[in-house]
Amino acid sequence: MTRPTVDLRPTTQPPLPRQRPITSFLTKPQVIALVAVLLVNWALFPGFFTITWQDGRFFGSLIDVLNRGAPVAILAIGMTMVIATKGVDLSVGAVMAISGATAATLVTNGIPAPTAVLAALATGLLCGLWNGILVTVLEIQPIIATLVLMVAGRGLAQLITEGTIVTFSDPLLIFIGTGSFLGLPMPVVIALVLMVLATLIVRRTALGLLIEAVGVNRSAARFAGLKAGTLLLIVYTFAGFCAAISGLIVAGDIRGADANNAGLWLELDAILAVVIGGTSLMGGRFSIPMAVLGAMIIQAMNTGILISGFSPEFNLVVKSAVIIVILVLQSPLSARLFRRLPGAPK
């Protein structure tokens, strides 16, 4: 049986002129911002770019930026996709606390570390799934749906740790937070691998496009035959998974699960990283590497403030001032100022 097709002449569309990737990357406002922040750090502290080899690993302020930025970068990887669907996940900070608490409590009770790690990741997946169900099945607005776990999750973590900081000396958990691979801190390695994998998965499969479609117009996505609900479930579950990894890193870093403070307010840093990375809170187009870059900009600022010797009262003021500058640089207004766009009225 032959299906009717439109009588169509194949056309030879000239291949679209693509911008040279390196040039277009280097002129992105995010890259310029990161370089600027790093240069300011260098001006404040001349040894900023010095990297030495010590105890089988790289050592230096730049490495610190990568290492300290990794947890937020990992959160941002998951958050990017959630935001691309026009959602938001406020619970990731709390999920970090739950994940760390789960792993720490299990190992201190004699459970083998690999099992504890898997259990922690599983709790992250469950937390994400829970958010996804609230958003898709119960159709609660994402900001409210995830607020539930943001509030309750920290309490849950406190229940698991019984309110104390559960310290451990398990080598595997500590390795996740402080170990190194090829001279790079483990958190950096994990963040890089996750970034590459996640980017490959969304861009080599159709997942990325379908996520963007759901974010741009959920109703149209349904009419076009997309399984929007399943996509949302996947995206929230993945965000929970990313949060669990971050939680393990943060716990391993201090060799303890601090249910009260682990991941506190990091959901906001992650959202900010995503926004700095150019993904709109209105959903749609997203870029995982750019969000990771956003996380690094935030961390470069934090590290810069630390080594600058400014009084801590200035921390938040400096940080918000820099963020405003970056966001203004990215705004349509400055885009108009930089290149003259032809006005396009109908």
């Binding site: 502290f45 040894g47 302020s61 900081i165 601090d258 403070n261 682990a262 590290t303 630390l306 080594i307």
Partner: peptide, 17 residues
């Protein structure tokens, strides 16, 4: 911020500086 992780991060910065 009274926390372990921030204590560690800040001390790391101090040592570098």
């Amino acid at each position: 911020d009274f926390t372990r992780s921030k204590g560690k991060e800040v001390m790391e910065g101090f040592i570098k500086a």
